[in-house]
């Protein structure tokens, strides 16, 4: 998927006091927060489902998913609609902060000390103007099975 010389465009967003980024190619749209319908028997990081032009879209509270304090969403929160395989899901974040281009060389490996939860998601670290932005992978963002959900 990488562009020439491993260059890629990333979209950065804030969750709590941290900054994360994902490949811009995964993003379908960005929209404001609207009330979600709670689903029974789901992990707490699944905020529920919303109507996205007729499709039922699950909303994942990224903060809670990453083990941070959960988000109490307001109208100022943002949902990033991403495509993962055949599915579309909405990521609840605080705000979109930046669009960056980075080559593979600029992305540093995350230190080994991190917890399993972080290791599951964080694929690398990107230093930008004194900030640290974590590049995350979204493959495991939804609960894998009923077992994990219960």
């Amino acid at each position: 998927m990488g562009h020439e010389a491993g260059n890629r465009e990333l979209i950065a967003f804030r969750v709590g006091r941290q900054e994360f980024c994902i490949n811009v190619m995964m993003v379908r749209e960005i929209r404001g927060w609207t009330g979600a319908t709670e689903l029974p028997r789901t992990p707490r990081y699944v905020k529920g489902v919303i109507n996205l032009r007729g499709a039922v879209l699950p909303i994942v509270d990224l903060a809670q998913r990453l083990g941070l304090p959960g988000t109490e969403p307001t109208a100022r929160n943002v949902i990033i609609v991403v495509q993962i395989g055949h599915q579309q899901i909405g990521l609840l974040v605080d705000a979109v902060s930046d669009i960056l281009a980075a080559s593979d060389a600029e992305i540093q490996v995350a230190p080994d000390l991190a917890s399993d939860l972080v290791k599951n998601f964080v694929k690398g670290l990107l230093p930008v103007e004194g900030r640290m932005i974590s590049l995350i992978a979204l493959d495991n963002v939804l609960p894998a099975s009923e077992l994990e959900a219960a």
Binding site: V49, V56, I89
Partner: peptide
């Protein structure tokens, strides 16, 4: 009727949305 499975997965007790 809208499918929950399309973007999420089956939820027990819920047929669809």
């Amino acid at each position: 009727i809208k499918s929950l499975e399309a973007n999420y997965r089956a939820v027990s007790g819920i047929a669809a949305a």
